[in-house]
C-alpha cells in the first residue's frame, strides 16, 4: 500500500468536510475490509483515510446504534456484521437479516466489516478488480465479462455492465422494507433502501446514489406486520467463506394459511438487489402450499437474459425461492 495519513475526526461535519475537499483521495473508512483490499491490489491509492470509528460518542451514536424502535429495529452503519448476527432480542420476524449477517465472509471478517461497508462495497467482478485491465467501470470501452468469463455475473438487469451486487445484507434489508438515512450537504434525508442502489445504466462509476462526501448513517426496519416471517437462502460453491452464486431473502405475511404480503429479493444475480415482483404478485392472496410454490418459483427469473456461462443461475434462483417459501411458510418440501 502507498503511504497515506489516517485522519480521525470527532464530528460528522469534520469528517464530511475533510472528505468533500478531495473525495477520490480521501475515502471514509469504517471496517476497511473492502477498502484495504482495493488498496492492496493497487486499485486505490488514497492520500488520507477518514476514520469513522474516531467519531465521538455523541457524534457517532446514530452510526453505532443497534436498538429496538417501536417494534422495529435501528441499525447504524458502523455496526459490525458479527454484532448484528449475535444481537440479542432481534425480533424473530427479522430472521433473514440474522441469517445473512451470519453467513457473509468469515467470522474474523464479520467482526471488522460493517453494515454500511457491506452495502457500499465495490463489486467483486474479476475484470473490475484486475489491476491490468480496463472495463466499463474502470474507464474502459466495454464490459469484459459480457463476452468473457461470466459464470458469476448477472442474469437479470445487466448491461452495459454485468456485475452482481456484492452485498449479502442488501437482499434481507430490502425484503424487510428497510429505509436508509443519509447525511449530505442539504442535511439528512431518508429513503427506501432499494433506492440507494444505482444500476449500471444509470451510473457506471459507482453502485449507489450517494453524492461525494455523503455519509450513510443508519438503517431502520419498520415494525413487522403480525405474522411476518423472513428467511434467507444462499447457494455457494463452498460451504463456508465463499461469495454467493445466488441468494434470496424474502418476507411473507401469513394470516391463517393465506399469504397477505410478500417481498422477494434476489441477490448476486443482478447489478442491484433484485425485487422478484412477479413472484410477489403471484403469492399475495393465495393459500400457502407446495403446489403454489412450485408454480410461482419459476417467475423469479422473469426477464432473465443469461450470459454464456451463467445459465445455471436461472434454475438455481428458482430453486432458492422455492426452498425459501417452504421454510418461511412452514410447508414441508414434498420430494
Amino acid at each position: 500500500m502507498r503511504p497515506f495519513s489516517l485522519i480521525r475526526p470527532t464530528t460528522l461535519a469534520a469528517a464530511r468536510a475533510r472528505a468533500l475537499a478531495e473525495p477520490q483521495a480521501r475515502p471514509f473508512r469504517a471496517g476497511g475490509i473492502d477498502l484495504l483490499g482495493l488498496m492492496k491490489e493497487g486499485l486505490r491509492a488514497p492520500a488520507e483515510l477518514i476514520e469513522l470509528h474516531a467519531l465521538s460518542a455523541t457524534e457517532g451514536a446514530e452510526m453505532r446504534a443497534l436498538a429496538a424502535t417501536e417494534g422495529g429495529l435501528r441499525v447504524g452503519a458502523l455496526v459490525s456484521l458479527a454484532a448484528l448476527a449475535r444481537a440479542k432480542g432481534l425480533p424473530p420476524s427479522f430472521e433473514a437479516l440474522r441469517e445473512a449477517a451470519s453467513s457473509a465472509a468469515t467470522p474474523a471478517i464479520r467482526e471488522a466489516a460493517t453494515v454500511g461497508g457491506n452495502l457500499l462495497q465495490r463489486p467483486r467482478c474479476w475484470y473490475l478488480r484486475h489491476p491490468d485491465l480496463e472495463c466499463l467501470k474502470s474507464g474502459g470501452a466495454s464490459c469484459l465479462a459480457e463476452g468473457g468469463e461470466n459464470r458469476l455475473h448477472a442474469i437479470l438487469g445487466g448491461g452495459p455492465c454485468y456485475i452482481v451486487h456484492p452485498s449479502t445484507l442488501a437482499a434481507p434489508l430490502v425484503a424487510l422494507a428497510a429505509t436508509v438515512t443519509i447525511l449530505g450537504g442539504g442535511g439528512r434525508r431518508t429513503l427506501p433502501l432499494e433506492e440507494l442502489f444505482a444500476p449500471p445504466r444509470e451510473r457506471i462509476d459507482a453502485e449507489h446514489r450517494l453524492a461525494a462526501g455523503e455519509l450513510l448513517l443508519a438503517l431502520e426496519l419498520p415494525a413487522p406486520a403480525p405474522g411476518l416471517r423472513s428467511v434467507y437462502e444462499v447457494a455457494k460453491e463452498k460451504l463456508s467463506h465463499d461469495w454467493p452464486l445466488a441468494e434470496v431473502a424474502l418476507s411473507v405475511v401469513v394470516e391463517g394459511q393465506t399469504i397477505r404480503g410478500a417481498r422477494v429479493v434476489l441477490g448476486h444475480v443482478a447489478p442491484i438487489p433484485w425485487r422478484a415482483l412477479a413472484v410477489e404478485q403471484a403469492l399475495v392472496g393465495q393459500v400457502a402450499s407446495a403446489e403454489l410454490f412450485a408454480r410461482v418459483a419459476p417467475l423469479a427469473s422473469v426477464g432473465a437474459r443469461p450470459l454464456a456461462q451463467n445459465g445455471y443461475k436461472v434454475a438455481l434462483t428458482q430453486g432458492l425461492v422455492r426452498a425459501a417459501l417452504h421454510r418461511a411458510c412452514d410447508v414441508p418440501i414434498p420430494e
Binding site: 503511504p3 495519513s5 469534520a14
Partner: peptide, 18 residues
Amino acid sequence: AEAVSPADPLIDAVAIGP
C-alpha cells in the same frame, strides 16, 4: 503522501502520518 497542509487545516480531527 502529501501531509496535511497549512492551506487545508484539520478541524475537529487528528492526523496520524504519513
